[in-house]
Simulated assay, not measured.
Amino acid sequence: MTRIIRPGDVQGLISAADRLRRGAVVVVPTDTNYGVFCDPFNPEAVRRVYEMKKRDGGKPLTLYVSSPTEWQRWAKDPGHPGLDGLLDEVWPGPLNIIVRKRPTVPDWVTAGQESVAVFHNRSQVLNQLAIYAGLPLAATSANISGTMDTGLVDFDTAVEHLGEHIDLAVQGSGASAYTSSSTIVSLLGERPAIVRQGDIGPEIVGRHLTDLAVPADAR
């Protein structure tokens, strides 16, 4: 049976962080979905995440960082004049940015791509876990790939989908305050572009990234 760490169990989180460093795969609440997390530098742990989710090996994982500036340790600043202002306003929060990765990010996390999606949430237990582990964390939503086209992955769904394969599940203290998965903004092209629309809308992103390309269904 999967061990469940209840809200407020600090020693349980410290234990989970230690196990993460030793290759464990852990379900944890983000600001939106429950996610499944592992050490990005452990290829076996990353392989397990892909396998348990039945995830296409060509789809990269996302990198979670525990502070608003740590992403620059793992990714290259695209030099967009509005990016710092956007992150100052939105992070911690449900926004992922896609940028060029540094060589220290393993190819098995990015599916061989030269870019990486990074995010920083306000989820207290997720931040604590990453800080205790002393690692960025490779992440994806805690459900079987191809399911959950609508709605968010909650704790019960995460355990139902992945419970027999994960090592630990950390339970949050309440439901998500958001209605959809995080907004994703790519900064790889000539213009920043919204790749996926979440609760952080183009009216917020566009205040800072004034040359933002917005898909028709997000206008």
Rank of each mutant, 00 (worst) to 15 (best):
Q124E: 15
D199I: 09
T104S: 15
S180F: 05
A142Q: 02
D167Y: 07
V26Q: 06
D107W: 03
Y34R: 06
I98Y: 05
P192C: 09
V25G: 01
V185N: 00
L87Y: 12
S123L: 01
P92W: 10
G112C: 05
R6E: 15
S176F: 07
A16N: 03
S145V: 02
P136M: 05
Y178V: 01
Q128F: 11
L162Q: 04
P192L: 08
P68D: 10
W71M: 13
L95V: 10
G163V: 05
Q124L: 14
I14P: 00
K101A: 04
C38R: 09
D107Y: 08
T210H: 09
G112Y: 01
V90G: 10
G172T: 03
L135S: 03
L20R: 04
V153P: 01
G35I: 06
E44W: 08
V205G: 00
D107R: 10
A177E: 15
F155P: 00
P81D: 14
V99S: 09
P81G: 10
Q128E: 12
S115T: 12
M52A: 00
Y34L: 09
W74G: 12
G12Y: 08
R191W: 11
E89N: 09
P136R: 06
G8W: 06
R22M: 11
S180N: 13
S186Q: 10
L20K: 04
G174A: 14
V109L: 14
E203P: 12
I14K: 15
G189T: 06
V28Y: 03
R6F: 10
G174F: 07
V195G: 02
G93Q: 10
A169S: 10
P202L: 09
A169M: 06
R55D: 03
A142L: 04
P106F: 08
G35D: 07
A218P: 09
D56G: 11
R19M: 14
I200P: 02
A138L: 04
G201R: 08
G85R: 13
T157N: 09
H80Y: 15
P81E: 14
H80K: 12
S182Q: 10
K76M: 14
T32P: 01
L209D: 00
D18E: 15
W108I: 05
A111P: 00
A111S: 14
Q171E: 15
V99M: 11
G198T: 13
Y132K: 06
W91R: 12
L126H: 03
A111R: 02
R207P: 04
Q124P: 08
L87Q: 12
D84I: 13
T32F: 05
A175S: 12
G146F: 05
G112N: 02
G12R: 06
R219T: 14
A16M: 07
A193R: 15
Q197W: 09
L129S: 04
A16Q: 06
H80S: 09
Q128C: 07
L162C: 09
A175M: 12
V116E: 00
S186V: 12
Q197R: 15
T30C: 08
Q128G: 07
T179Q: 15
P7S: 13
R207C: 03
V26R: 08
L13S: 03
A117L: 06
T183Y: 04
A16G: 05
Q197M: 14
N121M: 05
P68Y: 12
Y132M: 10
L168P: 01
H161R: 10
D56E: 13
T104G: 14
A75H: 04
V27L: 15
R22G: 06
V205P: 00
S123V: 00
V214K: 01
L162G: 03
V159E: 07
